[in-house]
Nucleic acid binder design. Structure first.
Lengths: 342, 342
DNA sequence: CAGGCACTTGACAGCGCTTTCAAAATCTGA
DNA sequence: TCAGATTTTGAAAGCGCTGTCAAGTGCCTG
């Protein structure tokens, strides 16, 4: 473990003072060209790399941005993290992640870890830590919130209601009238908004809302299969399903497959998110695209702006329907009923 | 942005010296019970949180472990990262990630970023940075390598050859003899090993190896569809496909789906990895399971051991075949040919 | 009761870098 | 040519914490 070369080593080598070396490295003040050259050469020669912790200590900042996600291995968050990573590339900042696992206590723990690591700013993705807690943190450092709307904080997000509306509208246009909805957890604001969008689309098409057609899941694949089984078990008749996210749509799809119900032949299926794998799904999934990487990117850019005291208006995050092959014109209202009878 | 409370604040509040506070926090020496109490109360009262950078500077370590992956949003790496995260939970260390994007230069850049961030150790997942470079780094800090075998370094990985052998053997047992292989990039050692396993299984079953049945992809979904198209275009006859990873299997599956070739009815499909989504795939994918989280976990535990100078023998990472619904007994050798003729 | 021992404790010198302040060097213009 | 303005430079004081060292405390033993 060889000794690290320090700024003073460079200074000695270059025949100047440490202050001067610091100045040329950070460009904090003018330095005579000759000395600058000498310093740069010395840095080169000694393979000097600044110690970021010392720098952090001295400047009172860590050049680190904390990102709270719910689950680092979830494809949905992975997309956003990728955006964050890209936005920070080439800047002096680096992201550091911690996961809340959809549990308030773990989220709080994650928050503590990041704060303890002296992050200069915090990006919070979804989650259910109390608003007050985040506002309190915002007194200490810039906070950007993705996927929640908290008055007084910088928030980023899509119009879930409208996006869901579009997805359901698509099914209606294909002639479907009995459309089931696999909702997300009722504790998530976005699930609620998507449910609202679903209801609004039905209403505008004069289709009565049938509570028996909605079942709530937890955004994981397994809950999608459970949802379809529940639907089928209660004898619900439907020719289409709108799932509140792609992962539950995946689950719904296997459940239907197992029953011999074909998508989209017998039942049309619409998801939400457009995960990368959705276009390679069989059948390729029709879904409402949510710009994951862009959300991460904008959150990170906004954070950088806050840190540098700049103004920044994030680009609006828009969603749009991606029509693939899991939806089709309704065939016959009796199709599913027939299946159920066999 | 309120002022942070420091260790000296605590010391003053508790009426002891900073050294004593440090000692009770770190448990580095015995402290009289009464003083310890006082300190703990002061910490509580002031909401003191140690400044990790100062600590790092003083101790010459950052309590940070750098992890190089190829792509943070790839489900394969996400699994391993999750394992790393879990293994480090509750320890003083925290992971920090950087991505190489399968490009040597970017990987080198990622390495530089992490080293510049004073990571105490480095976990390198796959990648193609020169062995020499890693060995050089290993003089400076502990290095754990996952997915590559580099003499002289701590390496972790599965037996790709054997794992692939098992997957192909399964197909052979189902009666398949014309088994195509979608290989990974030839620059990856693991792709090569999997190809070897494929060939060995054929050989042991006295099935001649047919180069026309193997096409190389790049481990991404799209290359799976391209591969199947290439196979079909060149008129290759096959009743089964062994893909070198699940993502390419997904691609292969859509490509077959588009052609009206049914899995597993017409063609059986075996993947490699067992990504979380593979069990929700339609049909649920038969695949060789690779213990992603365990690999991350073991790598992290090994790293901790190295950092603490302990001995640690990682548990062997074993793979096993997970039979789901994408494979079936061969129906008739002519099935695919019939399809091709239509 | 003095001497010796084992613990506790606090002072202080860094860790590597930034940043202020004032001195030194350089440049103006009359 | 020199006073004064301006720029460049170095000394030094931290940033918040750790860890060494020596002084201080109490206790046991002879």
């Amino acid at each position: 473990m060889r000794e690290a070369v320090t700024l003073s080593d460079v200074a000695r080598e270059a025949g100047v003072s440490p202050s001067t070396v610091s100045r040329v490295i950070n460009g904090t003040a003018r330095v005579a060209a000759s000395k600058r050259e000498a310093v740069l050469r010395a840095i080169e020669r000694l393979h000097y790399r600044p110690n970021i912790m010392a720098k952090g200590l001295a400047q009172g900042r860590s050049l680190t941005i904390g990102v709270i996600t719910q689950e680092i291995s979830s494809p949905y968050y992975a997309e956003m993290l990728k955006g964050v990573e890209q936005a920070l590339e080439g800047t002096a900042y680096h992201p550091i992640f911690a996961s809340g696992h959809w549990r308030v206590d773990q989220e709080e723990a994650a928050l503590k870890v990041l704060v303890g690591r002296q992050v200069d700013g915090l990006i919070v993705m979804d989650g259910s830590v109390p608003e007050e807690r985040l506002k309190e943190l915002a007194h200490t450092m810039p906070v950007v919130v993705v996927g929640r709307r908290i008055p007084g904080l910088q928030c980023l997000g899509i119009d879930n209601r409208r996006a869901a509306y579009e997805g359901v509208q698509h099914l209606i246009e294909l002639g479907h009238r009995r459309i089931a909805h696999i909702a997300g957890p009722t504790s998530h604001p976005d699930s609620i908004e998507r449910l609202e969008g679903y209801r609004a689309a039905l209403e505008d098409a004069h289709i009565p809302f049938d509570p028996a057609l909605v079942v709530v899941g937890d955004y994981m694949e397994q809950s999608g299969v459970l949802a379809v089984e529940a639907l089928l078990a209660r004898g619900a008749l439907f020719t289409a399903i709108f799932a509140a996210n792609d992962q539950m749509a995946y689950g719904a799809n296997v459940a239907l497959y197992r029953r011999g119900i074909r998508v989209p032949h017998d039942v049309s299926l619409v998801g939400f998110d457009d995960l990368p794998s959705s276009s390679y799904f069989t059948p390729p999934l029709t879904t409402v695209r949510q710009p994951g990487p862009a959300m991460g990117w904008e959150a990170a850019r906004l954070m950088l702006a806050l840190l540098e005291g700049r103004d920044y208006t994030p680009k609006p995050l828009s969603t749009h329907l991606v029509v693939r092959e899991s939806t089709a014109l309704i065939r016959s209202t009796g199709a599913l009923a027939a299946h159920l009878l066999t």
